[in-house]
Design a protein around this nucleic acid. Structure first.
Ligand SMILES: [Mn+2]
Ligand SMILES: [Mn+2]
Ligand SMILES: [Mn+2]
Ligand SMILES: [Mn+2]
Lengths: 218, 218
DNA sequence: ATAAAAAGTTAGGTATATCTAACTTGTAAA
DNA sequence: TTTACAAGTTAGATATACCTAACTTTTTAT
């Protein structure tokens, strides 16, 4: 049985190595900073995870998930996204409130609970942020989504997800009346700093490149 | 913020001092044995809980919950019973499976989650074992229930709850096709060891006094 | 090729929650 | 009222998860 903390390290590694960059390996400092701990703390945990054969790692080298490590991580991600869906669909939690609570719920240990919850929700394929939910076999659909900052001027796209799950970001998104499936038209892009002029619900606004980098669209 | 473990000690104290015996105080060994830890471990935790003013306690003396300690404990009990109700009503968990999972879910920290869950369930008053669920104000209905072993011969009663939540006990109960609201007729009682002859769903069976002591009826 | 910077590890320390073994206190029986 | 046993505490370990400060290795730039 893995501890709460071990689970969070595995999920963080999945996020860094596959979900975000498709680069398949992570560094100690990168992992530590993602988890909000010091590199020394991460090093200790890496030794433990290696001992348990959940990661592939050599001293001073890069880190990647082993087969069983990836399986565990995907299972935790599955629980996280199922709980987010539950909170949003059944308990009327808003889009920006589900993540924090799901961070706790994802660690509840009960295979039966996961299966029953999945069924209760009608075997959903996407969570409230538009991210794919791994199925019971641990299969995670690859997503070929682009960010808003990659969209050509003059084009209209549709928001499907966000990359950043911080409360500050999600509040900003809500404020702009932006949500899953909202249509966004790109009017122009400022070459100096990449800020973009866009139209949302007939309102023309300007957003920073940093913001546009974190909005995923189709 | 209380740790998972501190919460379990408070809930245990509520159970020992109020729920079961109405005696309002507990001993160190009694508490330790209830929680499955050694008395030395409990002593350490008692010092910490006293420091936080959650219990009233002097070295070598009896233990009782303070006002704020009782409040916390009732809130955890409320969460435990709401989750048990959710698992049984919405996810089709059977009667004897809900307790273990609720032991984990009761520690999720989110006031909003508790409120929304309560509403989603229709503000239930009783959990799947027939125990009263404290309301949002922390009010816990006193229950004046008797045990099956106190029922007079020739009388028919109705099961409303169980006292013992162990898997072994609950499995036995299920095996006998006994559940909330099942009618039980008491035929006779063996003076030697208190075992009772009873009728459940037209089947006449004999159960031990230990068993009858753990079936609550009206 | 070397030096500086970045990345990563080790040593030693804290806090929580647990244990065993030895000790102290309270109570009930002789 | 003394004594024995039950009840409870303390001391000293262990394991997890975190920290800071100092050290080592790898990478990058001159
Ligand atoms: Mn999330
Ligand atoms: Mn988590
Ligand atoms: Mn229960
Ligand atoms: Mn618990």
């Amino acid at each position: 049985m893995l501890s709460f903390t071990e689970e969070n390290y595995l999920k963080a590694l999945l996020h860094i190595t596959i979900e975000v960059e498709h680069k398949n390996e992570a560094g100690t400092n990168e992992l530590a900073s993602y988890l909000g701990v010091k590199p020394a703390t991460a090093t200790d945990m890496l030794k433990k995870l290696k001992e348990k054969k959940l990661i592939v790692y050599e001293k001073y080298g890069k880190i990647s998930l082993s087969g069983s490590g990836r399986e565990k991580a995907v299972e935790i991600l599955r629980k996280h996204r199922l709980w987010e869906t539950f909170l949003h669909e059944k308990l009327d939690f808003s889009w920006d409130e589900v993540h924090e609570v799901a961070e706790q719920l994802e660690h509840i240990q009960s295979q039966k609970l996961v299966d029953k919850l999945d069924k209760f929700l009608g075997f959903p394929e996407y969570d409230p942020h538009g991210d794919a939910i791994p199925n019971a076999k641990g299969e995670l659909k690859p997503s070929f989504r682009k960010t808003l900052s990659e969209v050509k001027e003059g084009t209209t796209c549709r928001m499907v997800a966000v990359k950043d799950n911080t409360v500050a970001f999600l509040k900003y998104v809500s404020q702009l009346e932006l949500g899953i499936n909202t249509h966004i038209k790109v009017i122009g892009r400022q070459p100096y700093d990449g800020s973009m002029e866009i139209v949302i619900n007939s309102n023309t606004i300007v957003v920073s490149q940093k913001f546009a980098d974190n909005i995923l669209i189709i």
